[in-house]
Design a protein around this nucleic acid. Structure first.
Length: 671
DNA sequence: ATCGGATTAAACAGCA
DNA sequence: ATGCTGTTTAATCCGA
C-alpha cells in the first residue's frame, strides 16, 4: 500500500528474493525501516569487511589468519632487515678488498642499546611505519653518539690495522682502508647475526636473544679473529654491485620465504669459517643469506648501485639526489668517503640490522610458540596434506615443530580444537560450527581458550552459543548483561578489540532467542539459559533428515564426537545435563528459574520431575547417542507420547516437533 | 532458487 | 540529559 518507493530503490541487490524490490516493506517497519536502511547499506560493506576480512577472499580459518598476521609481521621485519643489510654491504663492492683486520669495534652495543629502544619496546609488534620511525630514531641517536665516540676510537683503529698488516696478513693488493675494514667487520657481524638467527629458528625459538647477548657478536669479533684468508672470498662474492637497494630489497621481500627456507636447508659449505664462537652451526651456512643475495644481485645490472635508487642516494640519512649513477658515485666518494662519519653511520646501520635481527628472532620465537601451541593437538585429521615443514625436519628433539618462521609454509593453521566445520566456515563471523554439529562449544573453547584469548580472531561460534557458554560457566548460571560483556572481552581478544558492534549483537541475541531468559534479580536483571530452548534450536536441519544424521555420524567419528561431547559436559559446566539430579526441582529452580518455569510451569505438560522433563537431557542419552538431534531418541520414554519430541524416528517431521516443543514449554515461557 | 539462521545496524522505549 | 538495558525491525550474508 504505502508506496514507499523511495525505499525500494536502495537495496535489493539480489540478496533476498525479490523482496528487496517489493519490499520497501513499507508495512510496519515504517520509521525504523527508512532510517535504518540507508546507513545499513553503506555500513554493511565496511563493517563486514572489517569483521570478516578474509572471508570474502580466501577463506581463512582463525588460525590461518593469525598465522598470516604473524607472517606478515615477520616479513616486514625481514624485509627491512634485508634492505638494511643490503645497504650495509654495498660499500664493499667498490673494490674487492681483502685483508682483514679485525677492527676493534669500539662502540659498545650495550651502550647503544641503552640509548635505543628497549628490548621490550622492540618486542612489541610494530607496524611497518612504526618500525621505520623507530629505526630512524635509533639511527639518529646512535649517529650522534658514534660521531663523538668515534674520534676517540679512531686511533685505536688505526693501530690495530697496522698491527694486523705487520702480522703478515696484509694483502699486498691494495691498501685496505678503514672503510673496508669496517664493512668487512659488519659483514661478518651480519653473518653472525644471521647465523644466530638461523640457529634460533632451528632451536625453535627456545633460545631467546637477550639484549645482552646482542653484544656478543660484536665483542666477540676481535677474538673471533676474522681470518684474513676467509674474508677475501667473502668479499669476492659480492664484487658486483647489484641492483638498487630498493629493488633488491623488494625482491627479497617477495622472496623472503624461499630465501629463508633455503637458508635453513642450505648445505653448501660456507667459505668462511664461522667465527661465531658461541653458536656453532651444525651445517654451518653463515653466509647463506648474504651470499645468496649477493649472487642474485650479482648478475644484475652492473650499472646500478645498491646505495643508489630512485635517483637518490640511499645512504642512511642522506637522500641526496643524483641524476645518474656517475654523479652518485661521485657523491658517494665525496660525501660518504671513509671518514669518521661514514664509519659511524655504518655502525649505526649495523646496529639497526642487529636490532632488527633481534626483533625478528623474537617474533620468530613468538610465532613458533604460537604454532607449537596450535599444532599441539594431533587429534584432528588434517585435511591438508600439505607438509607442515619445509624439507626434512632437522629437529631431532621431540618437540612439536611448527615450521620455522623462516621457512614457514603457508600451511593453514587453525586452532586445534576447531572442527572442520569452523574451518570452512571461512572464518569470520559466520561460524556456528558449534551449533550445527553439536560439537560442544565448551570443549572447543576449552581447548582453544588461550588461542582465542590472545589471538584477535573471531571465534567460530554464534553469539547465542557464546552467550550461553558464558552463562553456563558461572556457578549459578546467570549473568547480568554487563557480566556477559565482560566474559566476552575476557575470553576473546577479538571482542576486546572489536568493541563496536558486538555488544549490540549480544543484546540483540539475548532478546531474540527464547533460550535466553531474563530474570529479575535482587540486584537487577540477570540472564539465564533455557537449555531446552537452546537445544531445540540447535539442530536446524538434521532433525528430519536421517541421511543427514547418518552423514554426520559417518563424517565425524562417532567416538570423537561422543568423546568431545562428554568432555564438554565434564568441563563445561553443563551439570544440568550431565547430572540428572540437577534437574531436581530444588536445584534446578535455583539455577534456572526460568527453565524450571517452562517445564513445570502452568499447566504444562512437562513434568516437574526433572529427569523426565528434558528428555534429551537425560544422562543416558548422551552417553550413547550424541545429542545430535537425538532428542527424539529417547525423549519419548519419559515423556508422553504426545509430544513429537518423543518421536523416535527422525522421519517424523522436524518442524512439528519443534513447534510442539515450543508450544509445550513455549507457552509458559512466553507468558 | 529458495529458505532459514546468523549477523549487523539502527531506532526506540524504559529506567537509573 | 545521558547512558545503559532491552526490544524490535530491517538488510544482508551464508549454508543447506
Amino acid at each position: 500500500m504505502v508506496e514507499s518507493a523511495s525505499e525500494t530503490i536502495r537495496s535489493a541487490p539480489s540478496g533476498q528474493n525479490g523482496v528487496g524490490s517489493l519490499s520497501a516493506q513499507a508495512d510496519g517497519g515504517g520509521g525504523a525501516g527508512t532510517a535504518g536502511t540507508a546507513p545499513a547499506a553503506g555500513r554493511d560493506a565496511s563493517g563486514r569487511e572489517a569483521a570478516s576480512g578474509a572471508d570474502s577472499n580466501g577463506e581463512m580459518s582463525p588460525a590461518e589468519l593469525l598465522h598470516f598476521q604473524q607472517q606478515q609481521a615477520l616479513q616486514v621485519a625481514r624485509q627491512f632487515l634485508l634492505q638494511q643489510a643490503s645497504s650495509l654491504n654495498s660499500p664493499g663492492n667498490n673494490d674487492s678488498k681483502q685483508s682483514a683486520s679485525a677492527v676493534q669495534v669500539p662502540v659498545s652495543v650495550a651502550m647503544m642499546s641503552q640509548q635505543m629502544l628497549t628490548p621490550q619496546q622492540m618486542q612489541q609488534i610494530l607496524s611497518p611505519p612504526q618500525l621505520q620511525a623507530l629505526l630512524q630514531q635509533q639511527q639518529a641517536l646512535m649517529l650522534q653518539q658514534l660521531q663523538e665516540y668515534y674520534k676517540k676510537q679512531q686511533e685505536q683503529l688505526h693501530l690495530q690495522l697496522l698491527t694486523q698488516q705487520q702480522a703478515g696478513k696484509q694483502q699486498p693488493k691494495e691498501a685496505l682502508g678503514n672503510k673496508q675494514l669496517a664493512f668487512q667487520q659488519q659483514l661478518l657481524q651480519m653473518q653472525q647475526l644471521q647465523q644466530q638467527h638461523l640457529l634460533n629458528l632451528q632451536r625453535q625459538g627456545l633460545v631467546s636473544l637477550q639484549p645482552s647477548q646482542a653484544s656478543g657478536p660484536l665483542q666477540a669479533l676481535p677474538q673471533a679473529a676474522v681470518c684474513p684468508t676467509d674474508l677475501p672470498q667473502l668479499w669476492k662474492g659480492e664484487g658486483a654491485p647489484g641492483q638498487p637497494a630498493e629493488d633488491s630489497g623488494r625482491q627479497e621481500g617477495l622472496d623472503l620465504a624461499s630465501t629463508a627456507a633455503t637458508a635453513t636447508s642450505f648445505a653448501s659449505p660456507p667459505k668462511v669459517s664461522p667465527p661465531l664462537s658461541h653458536h656453532p652451526l651444525p651445517n654451518g651456512q653463515p653466509t647463506v643469506l648474504t651470499s645468496r643475495r649477493d649472487s642474485s644481485s650479482h648478475e644484475e645490472t652492473p650499472s646500478s648501485h645498491p646505495l643508489y635508487g630512485h635517483g637518490e642516494c640511499k645512504w642512511p640519512g642522506c637522500e641526496t639526489l643524483c641524476e645518474d649513477l656517475g654523479q652518485f658515485i661521485k657523491h658517494l666518494n665525496t660525501e660518504h668517503a671513509l671518514d669518521d662519519r661514514s664509519t659511524a653511520q655504518c655502525r649505526v646501520q649495523m646496529q639497526v640490522v642487529q636490532q632488527l635481527e633481534i626483533q625478528l628472532a623474537k617474533e620468530s620465537e613468538r610465532l613458533q610458540a604460537m604454532m607449537a601451541h596450535l599444532h599441539m593437538r594431533p587429534s584432528e585429521p588434517k585435511p591438508f596434506s600439505q607438509p607442515v615443514t619445509v624439507s626434512a625436519d632437522p629437529f631431532p628433539d621431540g618437540l612439536v615443530h611448527p615450521p620455522t618462521s623462516a621457512a614457514a609454509p603457508v600451511t593453514p593453521l587453525r586452532p586445534p580444537g576447531l572442527g572442520s566445520a569452523s574451518l570452512h566456515g571461512g572464518g569470520p563471523a559466520r561460524r556456528r560450527s558449534s551449533d550445527k554439529f553439536c560439537s560442544p562449544i565448551s570443549s572447543e573453547l576449552a581447548q582453544n581458550h588461550e588461542f582465542y584469548k590472545n589471538a584477535d580472531v573471531r571465534p567460530p561460534f554464534t553469539y547465542a552459543s557464546l552467550i550461553r557458554q558464558a552463562i553456563l560457566e558461572t556457578p549459578d548460571r546467570q549473568l547480568t548483561l554487563n557480566e556477559i560483556y565482560n566474559w566476552f572481552t575476557r575470553m576473546f581478544a577479538y571482542f576486546r578489540r572489536n568493541t563496536a558492534t558486538w555488544k549490540n549483537a549480544v543484546r540483540h541475541n539475548l532478546s531474540l532467542h527464547k533460550c535466553f531468559v531474563r530474570v529479575e534479580n535482587v540486584k537487577g536483571a540477570v540472564w539465564t539459559v533455557d537449555e531446552r530452548e537452546y537445544q531445540k534450536r540447535r539442530p536446524p536441519k538434521m532433525t528430519g533428515s536421517p541421511t543427514l544424521v547418518k552423514n554426520m555420524i559417518s563424517g565425524l567419528s562417532y567416538g570423537a564426537l561422543n568423546a568431545s561431547y562428554q568432555a564438554a559436559l565434564a568441563e563445561s559446566s553443563f551439570p544440568l545435563l550431565s547430572s540428572p539430579g540437577m534437574l531436581n526441582p530444588g536445584s534446578a529452580s535455583s539455577l534456572l528459574p526460568l527453565s524450571q518455569d517452562d517445564m513445570g510451569a502452568p499447566g504444562e505438560p512437562l513434568p516437574s520431575n526433572g529427569s523426565t522433563s528434558p528428555p534429551r537431557l537425560s544422562p543416558p542419552q548422551y552417553s550413547h547417542q550424541i545429542q545430535v538431534k537425538e532428542e527424539p531418541a529417547e525423549a519419548e520414554e519419559d515423556r508422553r507420547p504426545g509430544p513429537p519430541l518423543g518421536a523416535p524416528n527422525p522421519s517424523t517431521v522436524g518442524p512439528p516437533e519443534d513447534r510442539d516443543l515450543e508450544e509445550d514449554l513455549g507457552a509458559e515461557d512466553m507468558s
